[in-house]
Computed example of a mutant assay.
Amino acid sequence: MSCLRESTSDLSNTYTTALLAYVFTLAGDMETHTHPLQHLDKVALQEGGFLHWSQTATETSASLSVEISCYVLLAELSASLSPEDLGYTVHIVRWLTGQQNSYGGFSSTQLEE
């Protein structure tokens, strides 16, 4: 965990930042999990009542955005939620449900062989 804590000094990779937030939440390190979540809040993409994340502002990969946004959602939901936090997560869930395909799943981030 100390190695991961050191990596929070560089939060330039949104995917890694989302993973770190989730890892520190699962580890019960709420002091450290706050820093990545605050950064993620600053780089969130807000459109109407929807909230999501992409690797970069010009990233067009819907599947990567779904994966990053899910990790942020897991980090938020795995911590103790205030009513304000719960309202925040609703905006993420609304965006995620809009990304579902007609079968209820999502496009894959895994390469098919």
Rank of each mutant, 00 (worst) to 15 (best):
S7D: 15
S7V: 12
L96M: 01
Y71G: 00
S80D: 04
F106E: 15
A21D: 00
H91D: 02
N101M: 05
Y71H: 01
F106I: 08
S61F: 04
S82M: 05
S61V: 08
M30H: 13
T32M: 04
E113D: 08
L4P: 01
S61R: 04
S12K: 04
E76D: 13
H52L: 05
A21Q: 03
D41C: 11
T89M: 05
D41Q: 14
E6I: 07
A21H: 01
S54P: 00
V23Y: 11
E47Y: 06
V90T: 07
S7E: 15
E67H: 09
S78H: 13
S2V: 01
H39D: 09
S82V: 03
I92P: 04
L26N: 06
E6N: 07
C70K: 10
S102Y: 03
A62Y: 12
T14Y: 09
V43F: 04
A79G: 13
L4R: 01
T60M: 11
L40S: 07
T8A: 15
P83L: 07
L11M: 14
I92T: 03
Q46G: 02
H52Y: 05
S107D: 15
S2G: 03
L11C: 08
Q55A: 13
L45D: 08
D29P: 04
T97M: 02
H33E: 10
A18I: 05
H91Y: 03
H33Y: 05
V66K: 14
K42C: 07
L77M: 14
L77I: 15
V66L: 07
S102K: 13
A62N: 15
L40I: 06
G28H: 03
Q110K: 07
A75D: 05
I92S: 06
H52T: 03
A27N: 12
H52R: 04
G87Y: 11
G87L: 11
S65P: 13
E112N: 11
E76L: 15
L96T: 01
S7Y: 13
E84K: 14
T25H: 05
E6K: 09
S54W: 01
S65F: 12
L26E: 11
S69N: 02
E76R: 11
S78M: 07
A79M: 06
G48I: 02
T89A: 09
S82F: 02
T32I: 07
Y71S: 00
V66F: 14
S102P: 06
